[in-house]
Design a protein around this nucleic acid. Sequence first.
DNA 1: GGACACGGTTGACATGGATCAACCCCCAAA
DNA 2: TTTGGGGGTTGATCCATGTCAACCGTGTCC
Lengths: 247, 247
Amino acid sequence: MPLSPVYKEISIAVIKTACSNCNLRELCLPFGLSEEEMARLDELINVRKRIKRGEHLYRAGQSFESIYAIRSGFFKTDVLLEDGRDQVTGFQMAGELLGLDGISTEHHSCNAVALEDSEVCHIPFSRLENLSREIQALQHHFHKVMSREIVRDHGVMMLLGTMRAEERLAAFLLNLSQRFTARGFSHAEFNLRMTREEIGSYLGLKLETVSRAFSRFQEEGLIAVQQKHIRILDIPGLKQIMSHHNH
Amino acid sequence: MPLSPVYKEISIAVIKTACSNCNLRELCLPFGLSEEEMARLDELINVRKRIKRGEHLYRAGQSFESIYAIRSGFFKTDVLLEDGRDQVTGFQMAGELLGLDGISTEHHSCNAVALEDSEVCHIPFSRLENLSREIQALQHHFHKVMSREIVRDHGVMMLLGTMRAEERLAAFLLNLSQRFTARGFSHAEFNLRMTREEIGSYLGLKLETVSRAFSRFQEEGLIAVQQKHIRILDIPGLKQIMSHHNH
DNA sequence: GGACACGGTTGACATGGATCAACCCCCAAA
DNA sequence: TTTGGGGGTTGATCCATGTCAACCGTGTCC
């Protein structure tokens, strides 16, 4: 008996959602799991959601139920102070998790906004906790992911606390390049998804300062910028700027 | 048959180390556990260690095996860049956990140094993971603690990225005050354990700037400073400085 | 008790990045 | 083709904080 069209469609959707078929499984939560364990993880990830550019995945203050794995696309997270100031706390790309900040108070503590049309997998957190009590590898990997986030944040604190404008931008570009590489994209050429203002907010700088630093890097032959398109021409040069702090 | 002196001593040491007798249990890892669960947690925390002022609890690069709960005392953590720059990433006090950053790579990513004579409980991490696969409340609380660390780091990023010197120092003092209060100490009067340079490093400022800001707060009647002794005289005033960003 | 060292304070000056403002570029919609 | 708006660039100026330097206070070791 042939499958009905409807059933076919569902089954394709399921296949597409499965962690075991996801090309991000080596970066994402399923890392290190056996086929059978991954199948169990798949069971609890049955919602995938499209988020259009500019839309919020969640907002600060909303109650926390799930974390999200980015299947495709690009996000920023930002926090808002009562007095109106805000700051971008991170840019997230495919294979990275969003929402870990919500565990502590059971409410999200920041906003997550898509910077391009994106897709995320919903991971209901209490079910993830249940499963990670049964699968040691999942438990341990999840702890590593959280810890990595802490280490990353320390890096940003370092950047904000001790680096000058051009050092910060060089560090930012090298970090992006390295993350694109890890995802199989060109390490030398990419489109920025965020505005100068968002970069500045993340780096603790004003947009004009970011713009000037880009221009300066271009003059020095380190990069080629055209609007959001970046070509990195001299990685060692950027590294030197980053770590050569007495001008 | 009377207990031998040796046995007595051991038994006292055990009692003193037990989470169930620790007055920090409401702040620390045992939070929310039943008596029986706490007893199981106790089983794996059988090493307590004294760290003298100035000594390292661990150093960046050392392999990671345990996390540490501070029983008494005061620590700082700092990270070092290859080019020699370093930054204090946090100050930790009784009831707080140290070492979470080491989970991700299985090596510590920062140094932890005692700022006064201190005592910590060793918590072997793999045993903690084993136990938290069995005790849901422990698992969940541990996740909350890690998440809280992420949220805290976002707060510091905010501070470093958007606040001016006096706002940063006001935020720092209010944070310390609040944490002392939570531990049953005076919220208005305490001794700083760290130097102006360490405060500056944490806040992304030079020590002279920190010193000037202290003097300014004193002139304005917000605090009374004498060396490391601080008396907070006007909490609302400090809050206003913190959030009133157009001078 | 004197001297030394370390941490802290204060002043004078330098400077990196913020601010304010003009203008440009790119693209989309009329 | 024109118009409008958002994002980006660049210049002139200002100011908060860094830098450099002198000096002070406190505690410690001869």
